[in-house]
């Protein structure tokens, strides 16, 4: 394929709708990875994804042990008290070995790298989340329309997580 036909990715618009640790990390790694390649990136935190930018909650996110077949444990077992905490602890220690930062530090890294972080207005209204509940590094609160407007331009990709 000639270069003229290549359409490089210029901007990643990620929508994070979940607060399970594996989804939050997938989103952050994609956003950070984009910046590392010189690609712009923005994250729209909606629904449960909002937990990842709430000061009081972001340090307490867990891996899902129930309803997650890749955990390779019986669902009943995954539901036992302490199971999520244990799985989360194990995952966090493995990630630290790979130099993957904890959620709060990862958010600082994203901001420092120029990623934009947005709260979803509707989800905030629904969950009664105030802007003061969010981390200080947040770039603002947007409607879906605002977010789409920011996605304009050639080479922009949207990804729902």
């Amino acid at each position: 394929m000639s270069n003229a036909e290549n359409k490089p990715v210029k901007k990643m618009m990620l929508i994070l709708s979940k607060a399970t640790l594996e989804n939050v990390y997938a989103c952050f790694i994609l956003a950070n990875g984009a910046r590392m390649e010189g690609i712009e990136s923005e994250i729209f935190f909606t629904f449960f994804g909002l937990e990842a930018i709430q000061k009081e909650k972001l340090k307490h996110l867990h891996v899902a042990t129930v309803g997650n077949p890749a955990m390779h444990m019986p669902t009943m077992l995954g539901g036992l008290p302490g199971m999520e905490a244990l799985a989360t602890k194990m995952m966090k220690s493995e990630m630290e070995k790979l130099d993957i930062p904890p959620v709060d530090e990862f958010l600082e890294m994203l901001t420092a790298s120029g990623s934009k972080l947005w709260g979803c207005k509707l989800a905030m209204d629904m969950f009664k989340v105030k802007e003061s509940d969010l981390i200080d590094d947040i770039d603002g609160v947007l409607t879906v329309g605002d977010f789409y407007e920011r996605a304009q331009g050639d080479g922009t990709h949207l990804l729902f997580i």
Binding site: M36, G38, D99, M109, A112, S113
Partner: peptide
């Protein structure tokens, strides 16, 4: 080498690293 390590190196922080090499700093 990772961006995180560079950021903690004491040489530059992550923001400065991106300012010095805007199009993919580590690469």
């Amino acid at each position: 080498i990772t961006i995180r390590k560079v950021g903690k190196s004491g040489v530059v922080n992550i923001k400065e690293f991106y300012q010095l090499f805007p199009k993919g700093p580590l690469k």
